[in-house]
Design a protein around this nucleic acid. Structure first.
Lengths: 213, 213
DNA sequence: GAGCGTGTAGTCAAGTTTGACTAGCGAGGG
DNA sequence: CCCTCGCTAGTCAAACTTGACTACACGCTC
């Protein structure tokens, strides 16, 4: 599962109604092209595909207000909203060692109620520990771990990565339980998209992978 | 860059000459279908593509000795060998937060001379530190880091991951410098493929992501 | 000795990703 | 006035990935 659908649904949802270029700008603003497959082609493809599947409603093209070809506006359907939360929950819980899904998940985590976020993150640590255990269980061949040669370093790396991730997840859980951030059920949400017409503070100058704040 | 080309080139190279099914079996043996895009279709596709590009020489089909359709055998060309080492070096040095390339790189690292492996891994730690610095540099907006809201957790996660990776890399460098493992210039190499006809100790029973030893 | 399961070897269509390309419009300079 | 530049908005072909499917041969059972 790539992160593109989650990202696109999340972006459209923030706007309520958005056209492709808007979504594309948000994702660039978030730096998503650096840590996921969020290139123009993928974004437009995902929009069309999800519209075909009934997750998005495509309003008929409106002529652009600012040059360029006419644009199609999209809006989440009920099914699309369901799918958004399904993907978000899955992303929070899944340990897959790929960075993009996790990054997207953290970006949208405040769309859930605080308690559910904590619960999902705890489930995440659990799954990480299970994975870690299953690596170790098959780690040592009958002849002793020396037989593995340098391949043992791969297990080593996986265990190290898993530990690091579990530690970070626990830190996040603590901060959330300690009252940090504003969640779905708690007043005005954090806004991370550009309003129509707002100038993009990062639009000029070179871009860096960490521009997506 | 996905890891598939590196994996396929590495597998064919180990055999000297191999047909698609053999490569496919190696990669499954290594568990690569769990941590990379090494599914049958991708493997056969990569073989054909690389043959077309002159990285592999495709010997004409030979009737199978053991049932099934006839098979095509592949062999690395000079260009293919070059490309293999280029990909391997790049993979060792690149910090991209995706697990598959790194895993493949560690698996093949002993194909390089020991000194070069160490040098590349040191370059890797350097790049990780550069990336970390560039994240932090753009971390704090003018209004103070509080403005970031939960999005700051993404930076936090990236920095945490980078630190963990750098630490693991330094550990590996130490072990290699300490004389561990057998490298390209040092006598009989570690063999990680099944010989033609050898029984696969993991062929039966359920498979786990960590079977690839 | 006919069918059936299993292993071998690979193909294929559908879906996704990539990176380059197109085309319209306004602003500004010469 | 006209021409180029940059922004807006999106398309497209080529490559890659996915997961299901085919086809052959061997051995086993009923």
């Amino acid at each position: 599962m790539s992160a593109i659908r989650l990202l696109v649904l999340g972006a459209v949802r923030m706007h309520g109604r958005a056209h492709g270029y808007q979504v594309r700008n948000d994702l660039e603003y978030w730096g998503a092209h650096e840590w996921s497959s969020a290139k123009p082609g993928s974004i437009y493809h995902a929009l069309k595909q999800m519209a075909k599947q009934g997750l998005l409603h495509a309003h008929e093209v409106a002529p652009s207000t600012a040059g360029g070809p006419p644009r199609t506006e999209y809006e989440l359907t009920g099914q699309g909203t369901e799918e958004y939360f399904r993907l978000l929950r899955e992303a929070l819980v899944t340990y897959d060692q790929r960075g993009d899904v996790k990054t997207a998940a953290v970006g949208f985590v405040v769309d859930l109620p605080r308690a559910e976020a904590v619960a999902l993150l705890k489930e995440r640590t659990l799954r990480i520990e299970q994975w870690r255990a299953s690596v170790l269980e098959h780690y040592v061949p009958e002849e002793g771990s020396g037989q593995l040669g340098h391949i043992g370093e791969i297990m080593n790396m996986w265990v190290h990565t898993a530990d690091s991730e579990a530690e970070w997840t626990r830190g996040l859980i603590e901060r959330i339980e300690g009252g940090a951030y504003t969640f779905a059920d708690e007043g005005d949400p954090f806004v991370g998209v550009l309003a129509e017409g707002a100038e993009n503070p990062y639009a000029t100058g070179e871009r860096h992978p960490e521009d997506d704040r």
